[in-house]
């Protein structure tokens, strides 16, 4: 396994007027690995995905993809670069064009990027369908003829059509029933193993993130508050928010359900100091005045909390 970096995001921020949706987010994804962004609604995880794809223009920060800074690319170069970075969305009903047959859906990305002859494009479409375990007869059918899970398979096949280096998946299984969700998750892992695709995986579901991701960033109110390898995040969470998030998940027995007070504040009015302090069970005076820096917890784990004072700054 090489340690070549495919995506590196540095100090990424996005403000929509007064709303600070994403603040100073940094992470890197090595080739063939999956980086998960987990957080509640309003945490900025989906905006981060859109920033990485440059569907949304960042306010500041650098996005380096395959060694090129995406933030500086012209519209034309960006379009060419998109061939290597495809996306899968949450809603398998909305993300496929209802008037396009599966054949056209799979051929179109190849046409757009000028890949292959028409005969080759069709062959690729057939191969892609087989890869996502759909029958060849699906080619001439339309999205409405398929169930949610099948549509998401088609969306995955479409994402693979340009043989991309990286896939950004935004809540790809959230709209699916559990039994189907497992099929799609298995499929995504298989394809990743087979093609060595790098993945940015966005989800609110801790169980799904744990299953899919090698490295995880926990987002709260536009920031990554903790990040590190999966086993460290789930086994030894350092940030109080990560701890609360894990303890809130069902299946722990009602007695152990964490009682994090209040709700996520509006991104219009981010609390001073540590953004999490208004809900943190351990907040003290310093949290109001001083913003905690990311501290290195060892083993690749980093967290931003004053309670971790004494560990060296990352």
């Amino acid at each position: 396994m090489t340690t070549q970096t495919v995506l590196s995001v540095e100090g990424l921020s996005k403000s929509f007027r007064a709303v600070k949706a994403v603040r100073d987010v940094s992470f890197t994804i090595p080739k063939g690995k999956t980086f998960g962004l987990v957080g509640e609604s309003g945490s900025g995880k989906s905006t981060t995905a859109r920033l990485v794809l440059r569907l949304v223009e960042p306010t500041s920060g650098a996005i380096s993809f395959r060694g090129r800074n995406l933030a500086g690319l012209s519209a034309r170069d960006l379009r060419a670069e998109r061939r290597h970075m495809q996306m899968i969305f949450q809603d398998p009903f909305g993300s496929l064009n209802p008037r396009m047959s599966v054949r056209d859906t799979l051929v179109e990305p190849q046409l757009v990027h000028g890949i292959g002859t028409p005969a080759e494009q069709l062959k690729t479409a057939e191969r892609l369908l087989a890869e996502v375990s759909m029958p060849r007869t699906a080619l001439d059918r339309y999205p409405h003829e398929f169930s949610g899970g099948q549509r998401q398979r088609i969306a995955i096949a479409r994402a693979l059509a340009t043989n991309p280096e990286m896939i950004v998946a935004d809540e790809p299984v959230s709209a699916l029933d559990v039994s189907v969700q497992a099929q799609v998750l298995n499929l995504m892992r298989d394809l990743q193993d087979r093609h060595g695709t790098t993945m940015l995986f966005i989800s609110h579901d801790l169980r799904v993130v744990q299953f899919m991701c090698d490295e995880i960033g926990v987002m709260y109110l536009g920031e990554i508050v903790e990040q590190g390898p999966r086993d460290r995040i789930y086994g030894a969470p350092a940030h109080p928010y990560t701890q609360a998030l894990l303890a809130s998940a069902p299946g722990k027995g009602s007695g152990q359900r964490a009682r994090l007070k209040g709700e996520i504040p509006s991104a219009h009015a981010v609390p001073s100091g540590c953004a999490f302090r208004t809900r943190c069970p351990h907040a003290f005076a310093r949290c109001t005045t001083e913003k905690p820096v990311m501290r290195d917890m060892g083993g690749g784990q980093k967290a931003a909390c004053h309670l971790l004072d004494g560990t060296p700054a990352a």
Binding site: V180, A182, Q183, L185, V208, G251
Partner: peptide, 24 residues
């Protein structure tokens, strides 16, 4: 049983889930 196996559980270290085949 299938419903339970299909959900990725905390720290079970599985690399593959056991889905229920087909659709409802």
């Amino acid at each position: 049983r299938g419903l339970i196996d299909a959900v990725p559980a905390h720290d079970d270290g599985r690399t593959r889930l056991t889905p229920i085949l087909g659709t409802v």
